[in-house]
Design a protein around this nucleic acid. Sequence first.
DNA 1: GGATAATTTGACCGATTGGTAAACATTACA
DNA 2: TGTAATGTTTACCAATCGGTCAAATTATCC
Lengths: 214, 214
Amino acid sequence: MAIPRAAKTQRRTRIQEEKEEVILEAALDVFSVHGFRGSTIDQIAEVAGMSKPNLLYYFRTKEAMHRALIDRVLFTWLEPLRAFDANGNPESEIRSYIRRKLEMARDFPRESRLFANEMLQGAPHVEDELRGPLKSLVDEKAEVIRAWAKAGKIAKCDPYHLIFSIWSTTQHYADFDVQVRAVLGQEHSGDGRFEDAARYLEKLFVDGLGMRRP
Amino acid sequence: MAIPRAAKTQRRTRIQEEKEEVILEAALDVFSVHGFRGSTIDQIAEVAGMSKPNLLYYFRTKEAMHRALIDRVLFTWLEPLRAFDANGNPESEIRSYIRRKLEMARDFPRESRLFANEMLQGAPHVEDELRGPLKSLVDEKAEVIRAWAKAGKIAKCDPYHLIFSIWSTTQHYADFDVQVRAVLGQEHSGDGRFEDAARYLEKLFVDGLGMRRP
DNA sequence: GGATAATTTGACCGATTGGTAAACATTACA
DNA sequence: TGTAATGTTTACCAATCGGTCAAATTATCC
């Protein structure tokens, strides 16, 4: 008797772990490009190289697949912000945050697009996470930045909009990759644009925080 | 005999103009949220308040509707960049460009999201426009910025990444509106966040271009 | 090796998809 | 006002959608 998701034995089989991995990988491919509504189980099944009913054996619904994907990605996505250190040097913290975010845009563009799609649609599946854990984390880091400004370590600025602008500029290189490539032309077809962006953005934000002034 | 899109007489009827307007308005509502694949003709028809076959009388296919929408929006969307004046004062040009882009994010968020959706999907419908007209316009304005830098009016910087960063930061307030609202909390439920963003971004970029240094 | 549980698949279902045909209603214009 | 063109709707189509079911196959463990 087939009981999906191993309801009988609480432990997950080796096959389960492997197949769920394959499915989520395929789902990331599809969802990140077409969004939730625009993606079909058949598409994902084809990318995953298995039959549709087989997919539905591991994830009972399309929503369950999307949910699992979002949950997994959400945590690792906030990793760089979490690593933002209150005790560190402001300039190097800002620099390394930008660098890390750009590396993620370069190495995990699908994850970035998955979130972008979700945001564009009004975050119907993750609004709670935004208002809860995300807001808390941002509030905490905003307080750090505010404290730096109060201590005279950096110029005064709105910490929330600072964070927004770092998010948007870095993720832009993942989400709008086609546009960036089209505008830059084929001479930047390698990963050079990420290094150029890193140089430009680090300078922009460091100067913007007045950390380079005497 | 019904011939779609007035094939016989070349002129467009009053009714045609009105209905096509209504349809494109509804299509913008739907496409901007769900993307091309995720949107259905029935959805658009319901928003437009007419029957599905009636929609298809004016636009023969879903693609034709999307195409017409993109074409119309594309032109007005680049308006602010076109207005960027080589003979103007660098600081005020940058400032007003940022302000204009933020106003568009505030007043035309659907148009912004429509493009964002298209970019996320790899620009399957507009890649030619990106490589052609868009790239030309950006190349032209980039040259202006480079000339300013050479003349010592602003600090040296990569003009392409400067433009990218202005695009991304401003459009962020349209495309990621849910996230911005969630993080800022409900006390910023009005349009105040746009004014805060304008203040922050103008300062960031003006400082970044060294225009405030002695 | 055999029993038992876990996995996989083909056939199928009702709902929804983009789109059509033709009848019906309305408008514009002589 | 008559009539031809334009506009609208009902009924429908084949394809695809998310998802189910039972049967077949494979892995696991004693």
